[in-house]
C-alpha cells in the first residue's frame, strides 16, 4: 500500500510519466482534470461562503499537510492570502536525495486552484519565484460584497 505520506513523490513521478508519454500540455490537461474532480470541496466552500471559503478549505488542508505558513483573511477588503514559509510537499521533494522532483512541480498549485476560483469571480495570483526554497505566496481577491449579501 502506498501511504498518503508517500503521495507527493508518487504525484511528482506521475507528472514526469505523463510528460514522457506526451508533453507538458498533457500534464496541464491532467491538472485540469484533477482540479475538476478533486477540488469540489473548495469549490463548494467558496461558492457558499465567498472568500471565507478559502480560509475554511486551507485551514484544514494545510493543517493535515503540516505546513509552515501564515494565512490571512480580510473579508472587508475581499482578500485572502497564504504565505508559505515552508511547503511540506516541495520541501519533501527537495529533501529526497534519491529522486528528482518534476521540473515544474509547483505549477500544479497554479492550475488546480485558479481553475476553481476564477470562474467563481475571484482573482487568483501565485508567486512561484521562491519554490527552490519551498516557499510561495498565494493571493485571492474577491467580491467585497459577497459576505454582506449572504448575511455573513
Amino acid at each position: 500500500m502506498i501511504s498518503c505520506t508517500e503521495f507527493i513523490p508518487a504525484y511528482s513521478e506521475l507528472f514526469k510519466y505523463i510528460e514522457q508519454k506526451e508533453n507538458k500540455a498533457a500534464v496541464i490537461e491532467f491538472w485540469n482534470y484533477l482540479s475538476d474532480v478533486f477540488l469540489t470541496s473548495l469549490k463548494d466552500l467558496v461558492a457558499t461562503n465567498g472568500i471565507r471559503g478559502c480560509w475554511m478549505y486551507w485551514s484544514k488542508a494545510l493543517a493535515e499537510e503540516a505546513a509552515d505558513f501564515t494565512m490571512e483573511l480580510d473579508e472587508d477588503a475581499g482578500e485572502f492570502s497564504i504565505t508559505m514559509h515552508h511547503c511540506p510537499s516541495k520541501g519533501r521533494l527537495l529533501e529526497y536525495k534519491h529522486i528528482e522532483p518534476y521540473r515544474d512541480y509547483c505549477e500544479h498549485c497554479d492550475f488546480l486552484y485558479r481553475r476553481v476560483l476564477e470562474p467563481l469571480g475571484f482573482k487568483y495570483e501565485i508567486d512561484l519565484s521562491q519554490t527552490h526554497k519551498a516557499q510561495c505566496h498565494i493571493t485571492v481577491k474577491g467580491d467585497k460584497e459577497f459576505g454582506k449579501l449572504n448575511g455573513n
Binding site: W55, S59, L62, A63, A66, A67, D68, F69, T70, M71, E72, L73, D74, D76, H86, P88
Partner: peptide, 8 residues
C-alpha cells in the same frame, strides 16, 4: 481581519 500562523 484574521491571521493564522502554523509551524510544521
Amino acid at each position: 481581519k484574521q491571521t493564522l500562523t502554523r509551524k510544521a
